[in-house]
Design a protein around this nucleic acid. Structure first.
Lengths: 342, 342
DNA sequence: TTGTATGCGTTATCAC
DNA sequence: GTGATAACGCATACAA
């Protein structure tokens, strides 16, 4: 049986109240009394029951994050990085992080209801936003503190705090870079339509083409699920259908790396016969051979920022800037190859 | 203000007790009453307060993991993988995962006291065990359920549940593989002495040498802190002091990858002038060029196993096998180079 | 300076 | 079937 405040009080010969205040550092308790109580508490190995304390304080000193099925892959880097950024900042503010892994989107919403509605956490972080995201609707409706890593789709309101990298600008930069290198037949591996950033990334592709007066061809766009394997499949498909294609940009690095395999399987060489670009700049991007041209999204930093904002909101100090859009940075590497001779 | 059971009871015209049982699915409540209460609860958007429930049940349905400072590096793969394995299994058993990031070893112990002693979690996972690990001592002394990812040092008792890869065998396999390829001057980049597995890995190196009647030279051993950079420094040091060295084995992949840089900086070529081996088989190991010979430790799987064991213990069904030692598997890749001509 | 009483929201006990 | 009461462990008005 655990040692409770009552036990300490009894052993020290004081009331629970005095014991609580002595341990709590209140100055309206006799010095001798305090010392005695502290000594007894130590001897008994007293540890306050955090659940009871949180219930009484109506505050958990904890923030929550629900991990979707899609992030369970051992080689998914995005959530790992985001979580590290979050937990680092949380620890600086003496907050813990409650992780709830869920296997289906429905479970995901229920998990938010359980941990936010159930007061297990003082606020939550929502990542991987979708079209008409029910989680955001739920949190807003109930006035629960939350910050979004990502943002809403272009045709939806974004009246909530968020931190995101500018997807449109990012993809636009990569595509423009390839156009600059003389490519005219550039394929795009898009993200799933239900993800909120998909229209932004696709728009980045379209705008870069338009800027250069190149036609947008719908059949140059393939779709993947953000996993490596799907990138391979999508690239194989594009290559088979369009032999004239000389460059492919993928919505994230994982799919771009999958595309590498497809290019090689097709007997072409990345960086020579085919330029390849991604999005994220995961650690692997600079270690793979050839290393991958991509646009850097500071995921760890985004984790830090969302946690920082969330804790401010929880503490009743709402941040001035509620929507932060970070400009991603083009990182040119070997997968770009050389400018095409014209 | 959140909706409580009391609110639902009042709105439905029943007592809190009946309301609780109606919602809890007890069969000693009138069907009509139940329906009425459920309807009201739904209308009001009632969400049970998990803290109150946990306090009453004396159970949090949550397991805890403390992340040490050393794992905060964005490119540390070990804890990310371990955590994914843990959270996956936890979710299958309807458990959540409480993460507490801590910046110093002292804070780390305090964090375990807070979350385990404070009953925020029903049990904890201890990773990255050290010599005379104070966390294990604390948990054992207080009879808190815990499972260790790793194990105790060779000269210490291991009377607790753990899952670990056999470090001695793993390093032994890599070194033996290089000896088999004809190498006689093999360096070793060791882990920090305070880590519990350090003696095992060093022993693996020594035994492999002894098996082949090769001398063990203390000056062939350098030390790193498991980070990439330290591997680079250690390898540079070994190369400078021992030009005759033709192979280096590092205690983990990160340091081996750091060593790659040092070898190249010294004007030598990995897999040609110098064989290199690691330990872990992190995702990067097979993507880097040249890809890295290593010994595979199934980190994600270890996470699953420790979580599985912990939840069994929490549920009062102690597993039969309390110490699991997994045999790591040698993965030969390009960094091994070719067998030396003799 | 210390103690009594009350409440946080829930479930369990035991009457009615 | 239903409800009053107590309990989980802690903190805080309020009294003394």
């Amino acid at each position: 049986m655990p040692v409770t405040l009552k036990d300490v009080a009894a052993a020290a010969g004081y009331s629970v109240t005095t014991t609580s205040r002595a341990l709590g550092g209140y100055d309206d308790v006799n010095e001798q009394t305090r010392e005695r109580i502290i000594t007894v508490a130590r001897e008994l190995g007293y540890q306050p029951n955090m659940l009871a304390r949180q219930l009484q304080a109506q505050r958990a000193e904890t923030i929550g994050l629900v991990i979707p099925q899609a992030a369970h892959q051992p080689d998914d880097d995005f959530f790992s990085l985001l979580m590290k950024g979050i937990s680092y900042v949380a620890s600086q503010h003496q907050f813990d992080l409650l992780i709830s892994s869920q296997l289906t989107p429905q479970d995901e919403l229920r998990a938010y209801q359980r941990i936010a509605g159930g007061r297990r956490v003082d606020g939550v972080i929502v990542a991987r936003t979708m079209h008409d995201d029910p989680r955001i609707a739920y949190l807003q409706r109930n006035n629960y503190p939350f910050v979004v890593s990502g943002r809403s789709a272009p045709d939806e309101p974004d009246d909530f705090p968020f931190v995101d990298a500018d997807s449109e600008s990012g993809i636009r930069q990569v595509v423009a870079h390839f156009i600059d290198y003389g490519h005219e037949h550039i394929g795009f591996i898009s993200s799933p339509p239900e993800l909120a950033y998909t229209p932004y990334r696709l728009a980045g592709y379209q705008h870069a083409l338009a800027d250069a007066d190149l036609p947008y061809r719908e059949d140059y766009v393939a779709h993947g699920d953000m996993q490596q394997e799907s990138g391979q499949k999508a690239a194989a498909d594009l290559l088979a259908r369009h032999p004239q294609m000389t460059a492919i940009v993928a919505s994230n690095d994982a799919m771009a790396i999958g595309a590498m395999a497809a290019v090689q399987a097709a007997g072409k060489q990345v960086g020579v016969d085919m330029a390849l670009g991604g999005f994220d700049d995961i650690p692997l991007a600079r270690h793979i051979t050839p290393d991958l041209t991509t646009v850097r999204q500071p995921i760890y930093r985004i984790g830090e920022l969302v946690a920082e904002m969330l804790i401010q909101i929880i503490n009743g100090e709402p941040p001035e800037q509620t929507g932060i859009l970070l400009e991603p940075k083009l990182i040119i590497r070997a997968s770009s190859g050389q400018p095409l001779a014209i």
